[in-house]
Computed example of a mutant assay.
Amino acid sequence: MGVSFALMWSSAFTSAKIAVQYAPPFALLCVRFLISGLIALALARFLGQRLRLTRAQWLAVVGFGLCQNVIYLGANFWAAQTIDASLAVIVASLLPLLVAGANALRGERLSAVALAGLVVGLVGVLVIMSDRLGGGADPTGVAMVVIGVLALTAATLLVQGASPGGNVIAVVGLQMLVGSAGLLPLSLLTEDLIVDLQWQLIVAFTYTTLVPGLLATVTWFLLVNRIGPTRAATFHFLNPFLGVAIAALILGEALGLRDLIGVAVIMGGILAVQLSRRN
Rank of each mutant, 00 (worst) to 15 (best):
V159R: 10
W220V: 02
R132H: 14
T219D: 14
L133H: 11
A151K: 08
L152H: 11
F221P: 04
D138L: 08
N239E: 11
Y207A: 00
P212D: 13
V203C: 07
A232K: 09
A143L: 15
F205Q: 01
P185F: 08
T208Y: 05
T230I: 15
F205G: 00
T230M: 11
S130W: 13
L158E: 10
I194P: 04
R226N: 09
Q198N: 12
V211Y: 00
E191P: 12
A233G: 15
L126H: 11
M129S: 08
F221K: 01
L197V: 15
A247E: 11
V224G: 01
T156M: 15
F237I: 08
F241I: 15
D192E: 14
I194G: 05
G213Y: 09
V172P: 04
L242Q: 14
V149S: 04
G182L: 06
L157I: 09
F205D: 00
R231A: 12
A155H: 05
M129E: 13
L238G: 07
P212V: 09
V244R: 09
Q160V: 14
L201N: 03
D196F: 11
P139N: 05
V145W: 10
A151F: 12
G228V: 10
L238K: 12
A162F: 10
P164I: 05
G228D: 12
D138H: 05
V195Y: 10
W220M: 06
L210N: 01
P185C: 07
V149P: 04
L157C: 07
A170R: 07
A245L: 15
T234D: 01
R231G: 09
L150W: 07
G141F: 09
V244K: 03
G165S: 08
M144K: 05
L157Q: 08
L150T: 09
V172M: 08
I246L: 15
G135I: 10
L222E: 12
V211E: 00
V146Q: 04
A181W: 09
T209N: 00
T156D: 03
A204D: 07
F241H: 02
P229S: 12
P164V: 05
T230L: 14
V159Y: 01
T234S: 13
A216L: 06
G166L: 09
L193W: 15
L184H: 10
M129C: 12
L174I: 03
F235Q: 04
P185L: 08
G135F: 13
F205C: 01
T209Q: 01
L186H: 07
L174P: 03
V149W: 10
I169D: 01
L242M: 15
G134W: 11
Q198M: 09
L126S: 13
Q175L: 08
Q160G: 11
A248L: 14
A137W: 14
I194Q: 14
V127R: 08
T156R: 11
L150Y: 05
I194Y: 12
